[in-house]
Design a protein around this nucleic acid. Structure first.
Lengths: 317, 317
DNA sequence: GAGCGGAGCGCTCATATGAGCAAAGGTCCG
DNA sequence: CGGACCTTTGCTCATATGAGCGCTCCGCTC
């Protein structure tokens, strides 16, 4: 079997990483110089023949995390390396972050969606005690997704020996008058008041496309979303569509939307934003750049996007 | 989130391997000395948090290969690193070894079994031209396995634009007279003569337990095998049971066995022995230590066993 | 409370490796 | 066939890292 250059590289890598020989020793064994051995090893690493990975359930990119905080004025950032199950890892990290928070948030305002459901699943029973979980965006209907929304709040609350307060309202009303009437109802008003006074918030964002849970739930049509995108929408936060600079895209739609306002999120002491996946890069950037969160829990690719994008960022300062 | 010692190790590993920072730089960032960083990295590698693997379809452990040759007087050794499909990799390596042999063996004697079937599958069409493939151990019957045996020889031959010569005989006869009569038959005698004159041999070994293809094929019962084990059998080579020192365990059984004799293997210029898996460690050792092969193609764990076992080895000298 | 043993630490000095440069070799084009 | 350009190589010197040692700290036992 002839010694192809590629096999030379493989052998050098085996002697170095498996047998712990020095580059000098390898050079003698293979009949080449130690400088060529060094180059072969670099080539092996760069080509993927040698794979070095850090495998740990809770690995975080500390340097990237600090850069994110500095760039966007965040109080904390958690970045999860890419893996076979990045969304699961990000949800797990968010669950752990929540469990480790001190002081424990007495009232936790949460949104609903797939990411929040994942976080609820990853939370350990007894992550805290006596936490009241409040829904901060509407969405109660007979749709399967919204029963998941209720389950998310209930699960998080139960695992903290607390209770859940659901927002018994549609996410978006067709008539402004109807929305005002619902907000005026004492039951709904009380929940909104609690939502506004939460100690901390935990939420994700939706993509401005047909996969949106607002479309799925029947509140918007795909035409509605296309129109919003045409007006510059990059995604929604607690049911409210925002542009790349964090501003509200359609004030009329926003006014008919029930739930916590974006200004309340901006004013919060602790707003934990959980986001992962390439589809959400644009909305992730819009959220962190416009001061809608104080903490971001994300994946490595999103973090990289946030650090390299040229869009100017005000963030929290 | 508190900095557990374990997370410190993970962070150090990320900065070193992912971000390519020096141990000095990492020490400054984490508030520890560069010596402690070094220890954390060693700990990370040893504990498996950092995983360095050489992934390449044809990676071979060159050092281990040389040690095997020196220890057992082999002319060549091919060692395949552990992977998710070690048996497949070993079979692939054996196929490549065969294809690369120079001069091309005009007559190739082969045994039959799962390993040989795998090798036949891995061989590329056109690996050689004009090769006659001869079966060196009996086993033609209506049993499904023996039709696989024929297919193995035919496949290898067809892929070399050659033809197969099957050994039209049971592997083991119940009566010595019957065995002699079959060997006297011109058809069988001619095949045995060709088998004895082959340029090279390719074979594997069977484990001395109920998984043996000889039991599967009905030649032996599990009681027979248990008795052979009691007499010191570690496995079979071309249907012949051997002890740890390579000697024949039951001369009477051996005499009733049709096919190439072990002495012919010992005398061969090229005898390629393909073996993988922990179950075959004992028989692998018996084969290489008693000069039954000139080349071994095996997996890393078996190679390690062969190098570390304390059993004395004569091998080929 | 004291003493002993083991583990972990920081350090010095030696070794291993990398960066950058100059030279050599190879390929392509006129 | 020769020149120009690009790639690869070996080397020097600087930097990074490891080995081994002495010291300190911690935990356990008497």
């Amino acid at each position: 079997m002839s010694d192809a250059p590629e096999m030379l590289m493989v052998r050098a890598a085996q002697l170095y990483y498996d047998d712990s020989k020095t580059q000098d020793e390898i050079g003698s064994l293979l009949g080449i110089t130690r400088w060529k051995v060094g180059r072969l090893l670099i080539q092996a690493r760069e080509s993927g023949v040698v794979r070095i990975e850090i495998v740990h359930p809770r690995a975080r990119r500390v340097g990237v995390e600090r850069q994110l905080c500095e760039r966007y004025g965040l109080s904390d950032a958690v970045v999860i390396p890419a893996s076979d199950d990045t969304p699961g890892r990000v949800a797990g990290a968010a669950a752990e972050y929540l469990a480790a928070m001190r002081p424990v948030p007495r009232t936790l305002g949460i949104s609903w969606g797939r990411t929040l459901s994942d976080i609820a699943d990853h939370l350990s029973a007894g992550w805290a005690t006596g936490v009241t979980v409040v829904q901060i965006n509407g969405g109660v209907s007979l749709n399967k997704r919204t029963s998941t929304a209720a389950a998310t709040a209930v699960t998080i609350a139960h695992k903290a020996d607390g209770h859940a307060i659901l927002l018994p309202s549609p996410a978006i009303l067709e008539q402004l008058e109807t929305k005002r009437a619902i907000e005026g109802d004492r039951t709904v008003a009380t929940v909104l008041e609690l939502a506004g006074a939460a100690s901390a918030y935990l939420y994700s964002a939706g993509v401005a496309d047909e996969s949106s849970v607002l479309v799925d739930s029947g509140y918007l049509t795909t035409d509605d979303v296309a129109r919003l995108v045409a007006h510059g929408a990059v995604g929604d936060v607690v049911g409210r569509y925002i542009a790349a600079d964090g501003s509200t895209v359609d004030p009329q739609l926003d006014e008919r939307t029930v739930g916590l306002g974006l200004d309340a999120l901006r004013a919060a002491d602790t707003a934990i934003f959980v986001v992962a996946g390439e589809a959400k890069h644009a909305v992730a950037q819009a959220v962190v750049a416009s001061g809608l969160c104080t903490v971001v829990v994300t994946d490595e690719a999103t973090a990289e996007y946030l650090l390299t994008t040229t869009a100017p960022a005000e963030g929290r300062r």
